[in-house]
């Protein structure tokens, strides 16, 4: 039973997300069929087309039936069609998702080692110049807005020096070199923000761990300072980082919306932003559904990994 609980929890959360998306669609002012039809509503054949849409989405059915159809469609991976391009939403998301996944994975992968290094060094040198320098830098990283930093990078390294392409995306399998070149500036922009948050977290956790009695014991037993810091303190102060990175994924997707727009990356963020601008409701709702479920799954995975690693939580 206890083994099944996490799975049930995940299902329950996903059900809530689907329901919220459904309710939001019903709460949107105006006739959903008109909204789904988009700005083309108003042409000659409009009544006919509205009727088509109502039949297609079951909007002529009572609300509970509509709900059942919606849930059924979502579970089958049918998120509807874009009212702009008439492409299935799910395939638009499938095309955009890898870009965002790469952006986030590379940013997190870059930011984590840098943050661990900076945060631990600052904690070990607490109260000294190096510590103050690192913490000021971390605050600066958090405070600088991503869109501004992105534009600055574009101007310096893409337009000015011409080291990197300014916009666009190449799939890693098509052209690995080009992929790296296109991703470099967006990844750095997003990683800088993350380094700010994570460095401060690592610093606080490590400084706290270094005050613990067991660290004094390790010193009194003659262990080398670097063994104490990088092994005995690190395991205690860094495991919570797993949870924090999970939580930060949500913030990162917000950051990805901006960074993708600035660097012209065709990811989920840009898809979402474009759909919002053009009132393409099926795309907005499909994208939000997918992102929300992904964030929840990542957080649950982070929690499970944390439990697995922490001996007290395991038993």
């Amino acid at each position: 039973m206890t083994r099944l609980l996490p799975a049930l929890r995940i299902l329950a959360i996903i059900w809530v997300v689907i329901t919220v998306v459904f309710v939001t669609l019903r709460l949107t002012p105006g006739d959903p069929a008109e909204l789904l039809l988009g700005p083309t509503a108003g042409r000659q054949d409009v009544q006919e087309r509205l009727a088509d849409i109502r039949a297609q989405y079951g909007l002529d059915q009572p609300i509970p039936v509509q709900y059942a159809i919606f849930v059924g469609n979502v579970l089958q991976g049918d998120l509807g069609e874009s009212n702009r391009s008439a492409r299935p939403v799910i395939s638009m998301i499938a095309a955009a998702a890898p870009v965002t996944i790469w952006l986030i994975v590379l940013s997190v992968g870059t930011a984590i080692p840098i943050s661990i290094f900076l945060g631990m060094i600052a904690a070990a040198r607490r109260g000294r110049t190096l510590d103050r320098g690192i913490r000021s830098l971390a605050t600066l990283c958090m405070a600088v807005p991503s869109f501004w930093l992105g534009l600055l990078f574009l101007q310096w390294f893409a337009s000015g020096l011409g080291w990197f392409p300014s916009r666009g995306y190449v799939a890693p399998l098509t052209d690995p070199g080009g992929f790296m070149m296109h991703m470099a500036l967006p990844v750095i922009t997003l990683a800088i923000f993350l380094v700010g948050t994570l460095t401060r977290f690592v610093y606080t956790e490590t400084a706290d761990t270094l005050q613990r009695d067991y660290i004094t014991v390790s010193r009194a037993m003659g262990l080398a300072s670097r063994t104490i810091l990088f092994r005995f303190a690190a395991k205690n102060s860094l495991t919570p980082l797993i949870i924090v990175v999970g939580v930060e994924i949500g913030t990162l997707i917000g950051g990805a919306v901006i960074v993708e727009e600035v660097f012209g990356l065709p990811g989920l963020g840009r898809l979402l932003l474009g759909a919002v601008m053009s009132r393409d409701y099926p795309v907005v709702q499909g994208t939000i559904l997918v992102i929300t479920v992904a964030v929840i799954l990542i957080n649950i995975a982070a929690e499970m990994l944390y439990r697995y690693i922490t001996p007290q939580a395991r038993s």
Binding site: D213, Y214, V217, S218, M221, G222, F232, K235, N236, P311
Partner: peptide, 25 residues
């Protein structure tokens, strides 16, 4: 001094609940 700690002289502390590192066997 560091070489002596835990070798020629060792120390036992007050609170055994906090003296052992919880993340290691």
């Amino acid at each position: 001094v560091h070489r002596l700690r835990g070798d020629a002289v060792s120390m036992i502390f007050q609170n055994p609940m906090h003296s052992l590192n919880p993340a290691f066997t």
